[in-house]
């Protein structure tokens, strides 16, 4: 790296550091008691019988932003699928089954159902306890991949028909949209949580549309992570370059 570039970086970095430090000094003090937006969010969440305020912010007060977030996730998965497809000068090779150390196999297969149920629990209780669709979806999707550690790639591929997960991904995004549009058809606003009864506080069915939107997000994240990991694993395990084509 040239000396000029390092100097430029040092000058720019020092300037940025000074600006950031000045900005930090002007921020409201750390740990202060004045959080007007937070207080209002908590109030709104309690008035709509949602015990987990963060779920209420994500799926009720800012449900429209979460739609954008979901679309980013969907678009990124789509981009990865396109980027990591099998190219013309590549072919698929069956990976050889390999021996897995017995303790690894035993514990992976032992933990798999526990992890899967934990993921589903975290999704289902998103409106009550810490967690929700995003977190639980990742846990549930990772749980499936314990099969790759405990058995082999072929076993993973058998429980993971990729087309089903791709379809589920798209269906979950559409169901989020449909839930939003249901509000419009019923005469309220898009994604306004006024259609369903709010239920009893601190039960699974509380919060109006929050559990449904949460479940849609959980489904989308779980299948998106499965599809993403499948394409990365395909690259690492299955797809090989045609012999005779040297890397330029």
């Amino acid at each position: 790296m040239s000396r000029l570039r390092l100097w430029l970086l040092a000058v720019g970095g020092a300037g940025l550091a000074a600006l950031l430090a000045a900005a930090c000094l002007e921020l409201p003090g750390f740990g202060g008691s004045r959080h007007p937006y937070g207080d209002r969010a908590v109030h709104a969440s309690l008035s709509r019988h949602t015990a987990n305020t963060i779920a209420s912010v994500n799926f009720d007060q800012r449900a429209y932003d979460t739609l954008g977030e979901m679309s980013i996730l969907f678009a990124a998965v789509l981009g990865c699928v396109v980027l990591l497809r099998e190219a013309r000068d590549e072919h698929r090779a069956r990976p050889e089954p390999t021996d897995v150390a017995r303790p690894v196999r035993r514990y992976a297969l032992l933990v798999l159902p526990v992890a899967l149920v934990t993921g589903l629990y975290v999704i289902a209780h998103g409106q009550l306890s810490p967690g929700g669709g995003f977190q639980g979806g990742v846990v549930a999707a990772t749980a499936l991949h314990l099969l790759y550690l405990g058995a082999d790639y072929h076993a993973l591929e058998r429980v993971r028909p990729l087309g089903v997960y791709e379809t589920t991904d798209a269906l979950a995004v559409s169901s989020y949209l449909a839930l939003g549009a249901a509000g419009v058809l019923a005469g309220t606003a898009f994604l306004a949580n006024t259609l369903l009864p709010y239920g009893t506080f601190n039960t699974l069915s509380s919060g109006g549309a929050v559990p449904l939107l949460n479940a849609a997000v959980g489904m989308e994240v779980a299948s998106a992570v499965v599809v993403l990991l499948a394409h990365f694993l395909d690259q690492a395990v299955e797809i090989e370059e045609e012999p005779g084509r040297g890397t330029p």
């Binding site: 959080h35 937006y37 937070g38 969010a41 969440s45 305020t53 963060i54 912010v57 009550l128």
Partner: peptide
């Protein structure tokens, strides 16, 4: 800011919006 095992108003909670 999770009220499944916390009585609303019994303790201050952190800002849920930034979370």
């Amino acid at each position: 800011p999770v009220f499944s095992d916390l009585k609303p108003g019994s303790r201050p909670v952190v800002d849920p919006v930034v979370q």
